[in-house]
Write a protein that binds this DNA or RNA. Structure first.
Length: 588
RNA sequence: GGGCGCUUAGCUCAGCUUGGACAGAGCACUUGGCUUCGGACCAAGAUGUCGCGGGUUCAAAUCCUGCAGCGCCCA
């Protein structure tokens, strides 16, 4: 109802301004400070004061009178406080919020009939997924979920860099080294087994081999790359075997988050189908193309650095192939969103600019950048084998969560004997949830230094705090279910929201009402972290309500109204967690 | 050298896109609350040169500009 109320406030304010002969271009809509339980406010009076030659508070009063005159559904009353206009919700606002949130779909916005492809992770298939890049699948998956809630038709893609030099080196190494000479893998999983060849190759080329051996290896690596460039099927097969094996293992790790993909799109696909060559031809014919230092470049407007799109040796570059990739996205989807590390910032700007030059509407392209997770001693590298594997982080998180559950087992008030399976389930939900929540709740552009204690802190403003609210709400509903056979997914009782008249109940209902607007904002700005911030506010409102308002022991009318409120809160908190990819346990 | 990003309480972070009501949370610290639906909770207290300087404005954490520290990028 928040969205509807905001629309109504905008309309009423515009009409009032119009009637009084004021400009309506800037309504100054904002949210009121916390000590006011109004839902919306406006500071427009400040801006009109000089024009009206009247002090702001007087203008505000004048506007309030003008608005009062009109008919309203969700605006209960308008009051001024100094120069500010504050809008209080009507009884109907609360009643409809309560009714709307009885649905398990609460927070899902109407279908936009717009398809969007979310590309995320896209890490080079060279070895185990490490924590340095772990923000990508977590942010990317949350973003995809938020967009689905916002009514988009979403596909998740992983773009596989299978054409770069690193992969050619890897392919050469896979043939060159004998497994017997390699160290034991850190885990029994394909990517851990395979990365040994990759690391051995880099050590060999950089430190161990004599000049002659390096030359021989380089010749082989070059021939693999040339083979790909020329469409040699045997080169694709050799590279494909290595890439698919490593990727298979990485995929298993990502599924633990869970981050799943609808499609793994290979870079070589756009070499094989000729679209990269076509892009090169078209770029050469644009007015921005220059031939300098034996390479074809684009002299992009507003970007100092030229974009090289054909190398000296005639081969294409990563970005050239990515241009073909993006035109393919534009052919198949209405919008495209990409989650990229901060190191791709320049590339992304060049890509956008080049796509524009090629005649594409780049408003359809959205980009989210995130900073690395680093260790106190520095960055993480697959090649050097420095860093924390995501598998290890998740294992540790689950172990610590399990320990936490077991420690709390004795002083549980609720006598619902947890089985071994329950403990295992909770450990997974809480452990993985805590990791995801910690990452998704921060702005992606801020750097994170990884520290075990901090990453696995279950107190703080963390997932378990919010998950606990869901478990509490579920507990109450289950109990009510036992007593009255109510449907836990929505109460079919005739409920009057006006029975919910304490501050705690009203505050909770106002928080619940905001959820769809939060989804809309997160989707619009591609910022899933605002949903995480919201879950905390909602959880806090619920806990205050929980403390002050007994549900099952209240008199019949109040009990039914409060039960409906608990159902609504459960849907809001459950779906908000779901939107950022954190599981909502029914018990913990 | 050039470009992009970050800097808010002792610590971890919201708020900045669209300037507006005393800058908000959590952790840690002090205190109170379990015969009551789940204490991974609630309530109260204390905590700030919003990196530094200048500018625009009735009004700046928010916009512009210079600088510093850190991170990243420049076939």
């Amino acid at each position: 109802m928040f969205l509807a109320m905001r629309a109504e406030v905008e309309e009423a304010l515009t009409a009032a301004l119009d009637r009084l002969g004021y400009p309506t271009d800037d309504l100054g809509i904002e949210e009121p400070p916390e000590d006011l339980d109004a839902v919306l406010a406006s500071s427009v009076a400040f801006r009109l004061a000089s024009e009206a030659a009247t002090p702001p508070p007087a203008v505000a009063d004048e506007l309030a009178d003008a608005i009062d005159a009109g008919p309203q559904e969700y605006i209960g009353r308008v009051e001024t406080r100094g120069p500010y206009l504050n809008f209080w919700p009507s009884e109907r606002y609360f009643a409809e919020t309560l009714a709307e949130a009885q649905s398990g779909e609460f927070g899902t916005l109407p279908d936009r009939e717009t398809s969007v492809v979310v590309e995320h992770t896209s890490a080079n298939p060279t070895g185990p997924v490490h924590v340095g890049r772990a923000r990508n699948p977590i942010i990317g998956d949350a973003l995809a979920r938020v967009l689905e809630y916002a009514g988009y038709d979403v596909e998740r893609h992983y773009y596989v860099n299978d054409a770069g030099r690193q992969i050619a080196v890897f392919t050469w190494a896979y043939d060159f080294f004998d497994e017997a000479d390699l160290p034991e893998p850190e885990r029994e999983s394909p990517e851990y087994e395979m990365v040994r060849y990759y690391r051995a190759a880099n050590t060999y080329l950089e430190e161990e081999a004599d000049e002659e051996s390096v030359e021989a290896a380089e010749a082989e690596i070059q021939s693999i790359m040339q083979g790909l460039e020329e469409g040699d099927e045997s080169a694709y097969d050799r590279v494909g075997e290595v890439v698919d094996t490593v990727l298979g293992g990485m995929r298993d790790t990502l599924e633990r988050l869970p981050a799943e993909f609808d499609e793994f799109v290979k870079e070589t696909r756009f070499m094989r189908d000729g679209s990269t060559d076509e892009i090169i031809d078209r770029l050469k014919n644009t007015e921005y193309a220059v031939y300098e230092d034996d390479a074809w470049q684009l002299d992009l407007p507003e970007i100092d650095k030229n974009l090289v799109f054909v190398r000296e040796d005639g081969t294409s570059l990563y970005t050239t192939r990515d241009l073909a990739h993006h035109e393919w996205k534009f052919d198949n989807f209405d919008e495209a969103v990409t989650v990229l590390g901060e190191d791709h910032e320049l590339q992304a700007r060049q890509l956008r600019s080049a796509l524009e030059i090629l005649g594409n509407d780049t408003d359809r392209l959205g980009t989210v950048h995130y900073s690395w997770v680093t260790l106190p001693e520095g960055g993480m590298s697959t090649r050097e084998g420095t860093g924390i594997d995501l598998d290890d982080l998740l294992d540790e998180a689950i172990d610590r969560a399990r320990q936490e559950v077991e420690d709390r087992l004795e002083d549980r008030i609720r006598d619902d004997d947890l089985s071994e399976e329950d403990i295992d389930r909770i450990a997974h939900q809480v452990g993985i949830g805590a990791v995801r929540y910690d990452i998704v709740s921060k702005q992606p552009t801020k750097g994170i230094t990884f520290e075990w204690e901090r990453a696995l802190d279950f107190e703080a403003q963390s997932a378990p705090y919010v998950q606990y609210v869901h478990a509490r709400a579920s507990g109450i509903i289950a109990e009510a279910h036992d007593e009255n056979a109510v449907d836990p997914d929505g109460l079919d009782i005739d409920v009057d929201a006006s029975d919910l008249d304490t501050d705690a109940e009203r505050t909770l209902l106002r928080e619940i009402a905001r959820f769809p607007a939060v989804i809309e904002e997160a989707a619009e700005d591609l910022q899933p972290h605002v949903v995480a911030t919201y879950t905390r506010d909602l959880a806090e409102a619920f806990n205050t309500f929980y403390r002050e308002c007994p549900v099952l022991d209240a008199d019949d009318e109040t009990r039914d109204a409060r039960l409906a409120l608990v159902v609504a809160a459960r849907h809001a908190v459950g779906n908000a967690l779901d939107a950022v990819g954190v599981q909502a346990p029914d018990s913990m």
